[in-house]
């Protein structure tokens, strides 16, 4: 067997092993994608727009944030800012996984991090730290493929299904429910709880600000209060 074929065989093995490790995480994106699709169609986004949002941003929380805010009449600038603030946490993942992707070529390093969403990050990091994946880009790609595919398909199904559901069922309420399901994961200690209470309270208190700016004010208040709590507790 010549060298190229041997290398292709290894790539295939790496990508398949990644897909096996990544498959369970893909299941977790199903309710998320469905809800995004349902919510997107209910605020008037088209199927291509909803699919594009899911496929190109590949971040559930930020996508739902945009849809929720636009549906509530927020200005586009506030919706964009909120989505970017929500996604700023990915810089942590980026820094944390960077040493493991160091030896990959330029193309890999510029493209692979696109898939750096929570579960993919956790699975790949775990494999790298056990020395199982040999730092191959193909393995990472394999881990990401099931989640990305199921997420996009779930969104499409959500759009199709959502278009036929009567308004009175209030399926859009699934969006705040997802936010509730997610926020508990970030409530790790007293400062994060205080940040949430202050953030929510602040946003409600200044809700009359134009363009949904109250969201950004509330977020800032929450971060400041959490920061102060961290400082007091050392």
């Amino acid at each position: 067997m010549n060298r190229t074929l041997g290398a292709l065989d290894t790539h295939r093995e790496d990508i398949l092993r990644g897909m096996r490790d990544g498959a369970p995480a893909a299941l977790g994106t199903v309710p998320y994608g469905l809800v995004l699709g349902i919510a997107a169609v209910s605020i008037g986004l088209t199927l291509p727009q909803a699919t594009g949002l899911a496929a190109f941003v590949f971040a559930g929380l930020a996508s739902l944030t945009m849809v929720d805010l636009l549906g509530g009449g927020a200005s586009i600038a506030v919706a964009i800012a909120a989505a970017l603030i929500v996604n700023f946490r990915f810089t942590m993942y980026s820094a944390s996984i960077a040493p493991h992707l160091e030896e990959l070529g330029r193309v890999w390093r510029w493209t692979l991090p696109f898939f750096l969403v929570g579960p993919v990050y956790a699975i790949a990091l775990n494999a790298y730290e056990r020395g199982r994946a040999d730092h191959h880009g193909w393995y990472f790609l394999g881990v990401a493929i099931p989640s990305w595919t199921v997420w996009v398909v779930g969104t499409v199904v959500g759009v199709v299904v959502g278009a036929g559901v009567p308004e009175s069922l209030q399926l859009g309420f699934a969006v705040p429910l997802i936010f509730i399901a997610i926020i508990v994961r970030f409530l790790e200690d007293v400062p994060t709880v205080l940040a949430a209470v202050a953030g929510g309270g602040g946003a409600v208190a200044v809700v009359d600000l134009p363009f949904n700016l109250g969201l950004l004010v509330g977020t800032a208040v929450g971060i400041l209060v959490g920061f102060a709590a961290q400082a007091v507790r050392g």
Binding site: L61, T65, A82, I85, V86, F88, R89, F179, I182, I183, F186, L187, P191, T192, V193, A195, A196, V197, A198, G199, G200, G202, A203, G214, L215, L216, G218, T219, A220, V221, G222, I223, G226, F227, Q230
Partner: peptide, 9 residues
């Protein structure tokens, strides 16, 4: 702190 604050808001 960011996710907790912004999701609550």
């Amino acid at each position: 702190l960011i996710p907790a604050a912004v999701i609550a808001a």
